[in-house]
């Protein structure tokens, strides 16, 4: 099982390499270190969001509200920054994590205490959060000239040769790796995804664990809210509209099982990077946006087929051992 998972990640890494090689054959500059770092930086926000989404998907749930959460938190932080330019940026970032976490916790409470299916809960909160952006902003945008210079500059700073935005992704990925492999909560996330009934009998509080997963996904969305707004330097009602599906796509391509219990940090990261590479590479070789979407879609289906095959092989192992 572990070998199979690793195998899947190696397969994905090779697919990414293949795309790089193919594109580089026509445009040698594509694989230049500088360009690769740019792709990594471009993908940083998606990587963080995919890790948050994976936390939720592992527990057999799904969070459709992450992009809306990102946009709402982003609007709030942009308006605060516009109104009170003196508030220090670290405080603003901390505030984003708290607000995003609270929005995620609201999802989690509904799933935990009212036992509503996560897809319904987050479809509802998606709409609510999007609506709240209108309510607080009155439909107006917060433009670049309203944001303080520090607010915009932070993530563009370079530290040890990498943009600060990339460092955010690296640190978040390390935190998630610790969470998944080195903490009781991480173990519980996998356990309730694989076998919720047995987890209850083992004394794991399934509802509470799901609640925590949604809160974590929300906190990541909040952080991404600040990073997104300060990167694209505009806060509007339409920020990241439809992006929730890209996040889920990154997870699925990365081998995170929608049925829960299967997925790794490396897989989710590679899934995000794969989408990032595709989106950067295809315009370079003059492929129309329509084909970009079709290719991303095909990658999702291919990933699902490969995952399904993996599950089947897993099933056969049980039988052989039973004989």
């Amino acid at each position: 099982m572990n070998r199979l998972l690793k195998h899947r990640e190696i397969f994905l890494a090779m697919a990414i390499l293949l795309v790089l090689v193919l594109v580089t054959a026509r445009f040698p500059r594509f694989a230049a270190p500088g360009n690769l770092l740019t792709i990594f930086n471009d993908t940083s926000i998606l990587m963080m969001l995919a890790l948050g989404q994976m936390t939720v998907i592992l527990t057999r749930s799904i969070d459709l509200s992450m992009a809306a959460n990102l946009a709402l938190t982003g609007m709030i932080v942009a308006m605060v920054n516009a109104a009170f330019p003196g508030v220090p940026i670290p405080l603003l970032i901390g505030g984003c994590v708290v607000v995003g976490g609270a929005l995620g916790a609201f999802n989690g409470i509904l799933v935990w205490k009212l036992n509503i299916p996560p897809i319904v809960v987050t479809l509802g909160t998606l709409t609510i959060y999007r609506g709240l952006i209108f309510v607080i902003s009155g439909g107006a945008w917060v433009n670049a000239d309203q944001m303080s210079p520090d607010f915009v500059a932070l993530q563009r700073g370079v530290f040890l040769g990498l943009p600060v935005l990339s460092w955010f992704a690296i640190v978040v990925a390390m935190l998630f790796w610790l969470l998944m492999t080195r903490t009781p909560l991480g173990r519980s996330l996998y356990a309730i995804g694989v076998n919720p009934t047995a987890s209850v009998y083992t004394g794991i509080d399934v509802g509470r664990t799901k609640f925590l997963a949604f809160t974590i996904a929300g906190a990541v969305s909040g952080l991404a809210g600040y990073l997104w707004i300060s990167r694209y330097v505009i806060a509007s009602t339409e920020v990241a509209s439809g992006y929730e599906l890209t996040i889920i796509a990154a997870c699925v391509i990365g081998g995170v099982s929608i049925a829960g219990g299967i997925g790794t940090v490396a897989g989710a990261l590679l899934g995000a990077i794969f989408l990032g590479v595709i989106n950067n590479a295809l315009p370079v070789i003059n492929i129309s946006p329509f084909w970009q979407m079709a290719i991303s879609g095909a990658a999702i289906l291919l990933a699902v087929v490969l995952n399904a095959r993996g599950e089947r092989r897993h099933g056969r192992v049980i039988l052989r051992a039973g004989v």
Binding site: M1, V194, I318
Partner: peptide, 25 residues
């Protein structure tokens, strides 16, 4: 059992508080 997880993780699952320190396994 939690199928799909190794034996040692199944055994330690309800005792994780005991086998971890400072919140880390």
């Amino acid at each position: 059992v939690i199928t799909g997880q190794p034996i040692f993780q199944n055994v330690s699952l309800p005792s994780l508080k005991k086998t971890s320190s400072n919140g880390f396994l």
